[in-house]
């Protein structure tokens, strides 16, 4: 009797410990992802929701009340001539920066995709601006683009071009920011293109060489199609990144002169922190979120289709 009893308790104990072990095994994955998920929820997902909520309200940051105003922030913003200019600037800046960077980098990649210490050094040199703080890049270029004492105008003088007020003339200010962005981005894009070129199987080229296909034809019929995933990746990543340009603007032009370089993120910053129009600023944020979201969805749609074709 006692033996059976103790046997039973032993059995129950084992069962219990097995059960708690089972619980632990079931709970463990959640414990392991918990810290990360908490960070994402608090600092990414909840803020997105809060921003959307604020875009339907009128609030000046100080007053205790947030007045619900429906879509009026959206209609007011889209009719605002200043915001229209901000959108135009942002798109102009983004498309010019990305198309210039991509075409120049592609040419450089075709040229620099060679073995040898010299080419390695050049690749390193053109990449170096990518890891330098945008603060330093911006200040360095402000100095280089200085109207009276800047290096750029001195260089242009050598060719008989008179001083250009790069950053202080609304006609050239956006162009100046594009030049800086292209200069900073080229190295990174070039190296990604080179990585893409190196992943193209060599035997394809041998076949083309046997057929006596011309260099230009080989590029358009072979290299470019093989590079299209890289090209596509860089275009989307480049556009999404450029839509959010802020640092160079904040340091070099402050959105000026006369709003010629004011872009969305700087506009949100200005409205939120200088004019305390929180609802308005949030609405601009939601619009940027939509734009970025559309490009991200396009990217994944096309990506999955490509994977489909290959399988």
């Amino acid at each position: 009797m006692t033996l059976a009893n103790s046997n039973e308790t032993l059995h129950r104990k084992r069962e219990q410990s097995a059960l708690s072990a089972l619980n632990w095994v079931a709970v463990r994955p959640y414990m392991m992802i918990f810290p990360a998920i908490i960070v994402f929820t608090l600092f990414f997902l909840y803020p997105i929701g809060y921003m959307i909520y604020l875009s339907f309200h009128d609030w000046n940051f100080v007053s205790p009340d947030k007045d619900y105003v429906g879509f009026s922030n959206f209609t007011a913003l889209l009719q605002d001539a200043k915001f229209q200019q901000v959108l135009r600037n942002t798109f102009m800046y983004s498309f010019a920066t990305v198309s210039l960077t991509i075409s120049i980098s592609l040419l450089l990649a075709l040229w620099l995709n060679k073995k040898g210490a010299m080419y390695g050094f050049v690749q390193g040199a053109i990449f170096s601006p990518h890891i330098i703080s945008l603060v330093s890049i911006s200040m360095l270029w402000m100095w280089i683009m200085d109207t009276d004492y800047g290096l750029l105008n001195w260089f242009l003088n050598l060719f008989g071009i008179s001083n250009i007020p790069w950053l202080t003339d609304p006609k050239t200010s956006l162009l100046s920011l594009i030049i800086v962005a292209v200069w900073k981005g080229i190295g990174y894009y070039t190296l990604i293109f080179i990585a893409g070129l190196q992943s193209i199987p060599k035997d394809i080229y041998e076949a083309a060489a046997l057929d006596d296909t011309s260099k230009v034809r080989t590029f358009f019929k072979l290299t470019l199609p093989m590079l299209s995933p890289t090209l596509f990746f860089l275009t989307i990543i480049g556009l999404i990144g450029s839509f959010q340009v802020f640092e160079t603007i904040s340091i070099m032009t402050k959105g000026g002169p006369i709003n010629s370089t004011n872009t969305i993120v700087y506009y949100i910053y200005e409205n939120g922190f200088r004019f305390f129009k929180i609802g308005y600023a949030s609405t601009a944020g939601v619009i940027l979120l939509l734009v970025v979201g559309v490009f991200t969805i396009i990217y994944f749609k096309l990506l999955s289709r490509k994977v489909h074709y290959q399988s």
Binding site: P47, I48, Q244, F246, I268, G272, I278, T296
Partner: peptide, 14 residues
């Protein structure tokens, strides 16, 4: 997919 430049305002308020 969410860039931090996009949500600074709500995070600031938080």
């Amino acid at each position: 997919m969410i860039p931090t430049q996009l949500i600074f305002l709500p995070v600031y308020l938080q």
